[in-house]
Amino acid sequence: MKNFRPEVLEEYCKNVLTASGVDEGCARTVARSLLDAELTGVSTHGVSRMGIYLQRLNAGLVSRENRICIVRESPSAVVIDAGNTLGAPSARFAMETCIRKAAETGCCFATVRNSNHFGTAAFYTRMAAERGMVGFACTNLTGKIAPYGSAEPFMGTDPISVAAPSETIPLVLDMTPSVVALGKLILAQKLGQPIPLGWALDREGNPTTDPAEGRKGSLIPIGGPKGSGLAIMVEVLSGVLSGAGCGPHLHDLYEFDAPQGVGHFLGAIDVSHFLDPAAFRSGLSQMVREIKGLRKAPGAEEILLPGERAARSAAAKQETGIDLPDPVYEELAELGRPYGLTL
């Protein structure tokens, strides 16, 4: 295990990407999104993803240029073609556009097509919350979740995030419709660790503790039909509405047959168009205090709200640094050697 200052890791990732030929602005956004994941305790979407991003870039499956463009727009809606640009810059551009337009109209939503893996959805919704707005983000991926009652996967592990500003830290929901994100299986496989029963099924539909078999099979949706229904609705917004396509019509991040072609759906709601921002923050803070003041369940040490654990993690790691497991460190260090970069 090795420890690094967050800014050191971020700069290294940015330098590796730019040295490989990636547009500097895109490289900085990707590095920032990866470090944000590390800081907030979502290491499955952190710097361990650098390897697959570089592999896809080197295979010509992702554009090193910034090809993001607006295809169509109205006062409260934007259609964006990512042009096979890296996912994080595409989603960030979409959210920044929504924030700007929502300030004028009250709300704005954007679809993005021809994109790639964008990291954690909360990275984008917190952008809106930091501007006093409610943010929404979701994305689809190739089929990994079996619809309720099906023996084979169709929907991806499609994450959903909503963030709202408060007087202190924002409330941030970031979840997948599956029991765990696919990234946890990927990281477990990389570290040579088993996964708990109840996370995934193998190709025959049997429970498995082998992350490799789980990746070949399907992930289990939360709450049966409820998680299945959430994933289907994300496919509607990110896949059908964007024109990107759904589930099995997309391409896997870890297969090298074609660009991913995934879609995103992001939006911002300007609180000031609905309610005085101070009143909104005060009302939200009162709700938080009342929830925190409820009687705790037996065995519970604390009542946690969405985003609270992530905020604490980020604050702590800014002070103590980020620990990287040896396999992740070694892979990351190897990525920089062709360019004379050291970590």
Rank of each mutant, 00 (worst) to 15 (best):
G224H: 06
V8L: 12
S285Y: 02
L294Y: 04
S285R: 10
A310E: 15
G336K: 04
D210I: 03
I303Y: 08
D252W: 14
G205L: 08
D276T: 04
S313R: 08
G307V: 04
K190F: 02
L201D: 04
F4I: 00
V16R: 13
L341H: 12
A121N: 01
G192K: 08
G149D: 02
M1R: 10
G83D: 00
D270P: 06
A231I: 00
A77T: 15
G87M: 03
L141E: 11
V240T: 13
M1F: 08
G224M: 07
G156Y: 05
S76Q: 10
W199R: 02
A91S: 10
N206V: 01
V79N: 14
G267A: 02
N15R: 15
S313G: 14
V71T: 14
A300N: 07
T105F: 09
E38Q: 11
G263L: 05
L253E: 08
P207L: 09
V179C: 01
S166I: 05
M50Q: 09
M127P: 08
M1Q: 12
L230Y: 03
E130L: 05
P6Q: 08
V47F: 12
P207E: 12
S90M: 11
E38L: 06
I222R: 13
F118H: 11
L332C: 03
P89F: 11
N58Y: 10
A297Q: 13
P165W: 09
C69G: 12
L305P: 01
Q318A: 10
G132Y: 08
V79H: 07
Y124E: 02
G60S: 09
A59S: 14
G21I: 09
L230I: 15
V236N: 06
H273P: 03
T157N: 15
E302R: 15
N84H: 14
T44F: 09
P248Q: 07
S218M: 14
L182A: 13
G299D: 02
M175L: 15
A333E: 04
Q193Y: 04
P153R: 08
Y329L: 14
E302Y: 14
E290S: 13
L185K: 06
A279N: 11
P277F: 07
